[in-house]
Amino acid sequence: MTLVTPDFVEELQQYGDDTVLRCFNCGTCVAICPLINDSFPRRLIRYIQIGARDRILAGGRDLWQCLHCGLCSRTCPRQADPAEVILSLKRLVLAAWREEDTKNV
């Protein structure tokens, strides 16, 4: 079961991104990404749009595969800036991990 966090987009904005809702999931970013795997980064952008925060946190490590090369942002037809979205997610996930560590101490 996936819990939906309706205000996840607003939460993410604290970490730098405000373009994610422009994405209409065309998949250009997946086609152009040098990682060529597992619908990256479109899948994560879709998760943000539907508020699937838990799924993003569960697969958080995958974000660091992103090379931040920016080819997805250059070719995005909606200027949704996927590279910056992924960078914002890295910040959010890192903050969540650190918060968890603090709680566990």
Binding site: P34, L35, W64, Q65, L67, C69, L71, R74, T75
Partner: peptide, 24 residues
């Protein structure tokens, strides 16, 4: 503006991925 990544930025977390992208 459409250059392809050398893979280097991944080297600190995954040298294998950096190498794979670099070879391509």
């Amino acid at each position: 503006p459409f250059t392809t990544c050398c893979g280097g930025p991944a080297e600190s977390v995954s040298p294998a991925l950096a190498l794979e992208v670099g070879k391509r």
